[in-house]
Design a protein around this nucleic acid. Structure first.
Lengths: 217, 217
DNA sequence: TGCATTTTATAGCGTCCACTAGATAAAAGC
DNA sequence: GCTTTTATCTAGTGGACGCTATAAAATGCA
């Protein structure tokens, strides 16, 4: 039972130039770990897990292969860390919309509108990494882990709808599961559309239509 | 200007045991080309273009690599033929629905219902090959060719809706492009859902909700 | 000034990839 | 029979893949 404080895996102090922080012992890392992670994130986001080679990664991260393996483990654990980082930096708008809006209807409306913006934001790959980055993956575990994330997102939508049914905001015969799956499929379809060239305005028009299935509220 | 009759590329007579047909000259092919093509189709459908290796293909097609290259060209042209075959054998329900139903609304209703069944049909991979088989592809041309097919499908929906607007079946302020993109995104989302484990009944419930955006007809 | 520790750059490991040369086999034409 | 044509089988090709052994470089500590 050794006493590691927090942080994941075995990691040393970041940001060597921090004020009073004691520097670690050996040769200091010559690159910024967060910057390199972000570069890997963008590469995986754009090209997917398989189509992004370690050679691609070392180029966009601007580090050598041994540095990559020392700092992030193998390709798969780097990808897993990228997916976690993506969830925090880019993939949390849905959860936020469900949590912050007063009703499920309002949360889903905001979620769809924000998806139109997020999936076509300039300066980064279009669409959702969780939807696309592990499609047709020969490493089944990687494909499965993103599938679980997608299904968890739909489950979150379902329980938000079910909560409104329990509160009496939505009628008791509401099919929360079907409505949630409809919403999830819509989001995934919007992500595919963003990849296929749809603009933000086009996705927003699409979202407006999708929202018409809800009772006006 | 040489006189090839029909058929694609250079191909010899199929079905050597045909009645009065003259056999070709050399050693006859030891496998049925259509059967091998179908096996390749299922492999590409399930695992995608990149994740299906030539070694995988020769195994499921039960032929040697030189036979594959002699009969189908390289991996990419085999995939292109598979996509064409898929369009004929599995991917034509949408066009048929649009062509055979009396209104765009009825055509799209049938299209969504049949998609629920097609994308979860037992005994074959779930979802749509055109949506999934070239995602995250390092061969950009392959990815692009399926993207063009997806966008062409949406364009076909749009022109069917526009036709009903011209006929006066739909109101003149109908946004055909947005409705078509909504429908296409819905289908693509249903395909993703099928891949992620949704059942036929679940997709049908989803399709029912999606149809609620249309004026009752 | 060493010594311990950690990261770096170089260079390569074995494996799988798409693909093919060369020899052999099976048919038609003569 | 022999020749021609085509398909098959065996056994590889060069190259990219994910990953790593090794040694030099850069730090803290004695």
């Amino acid at each position: 039972m050794h006493s590691m404080v927090s942080g994941e895996k075995t990691e040393r102090s970041e940001a060597p130039a921090r004020s009073g922080a004691r520097r670690a012992r050996g040769r200091p890392r010559s690159f910024d770990r967060a910057t390199a992670l972000e570069a890997a994130l963008l590469a995986f986001w754009e090209h997917g897990y398989e189509a992004t080679s370690v050679s691609d990664l070392t180029r966009v991260m601007d580090i050598g292969a041994p540095s990559l393996y020392a700092a992030f483990g193998d390709k798969r654990s780097l990808f897993e860390e990228v997916v976690r980082e993506y969830g925090v930096r880019y993939g949390s708008f849905g959860d936020r919309a469900l949590a912050e809006e007063p009703t499920a209807r309002a949360g889903i409306e905001r979620m769809l509108r924000e998806a139109a913006a997020e999936y076509t934001a300039p300066g980064r790959p279009h669409g959702c990494l969780v939807v696309h980055a592990a499609a047709n993956c020969s490493t089944a575990e990687v494909e499965e882990s993103l599938r679980e994330r997608r299904n968890a997102n739909i489950a979150a939508i379902e329980s938000r709808i079910a909560a409104d049914v329990d509160r009496g905001v939505l009628p008791p015969d509401t099919d929360a599961a079907a409505l949630a799956r409809y919403t999830g499929a819509m989001i995934q379809g919007m992500s595919q559309q963003a990849r296929d060239g749809a603009t933000r305005a086009e996705l927003e028009a699409l979202a407006e239509i999708a929202l018409a299935v809800w009772p006006r509220g």
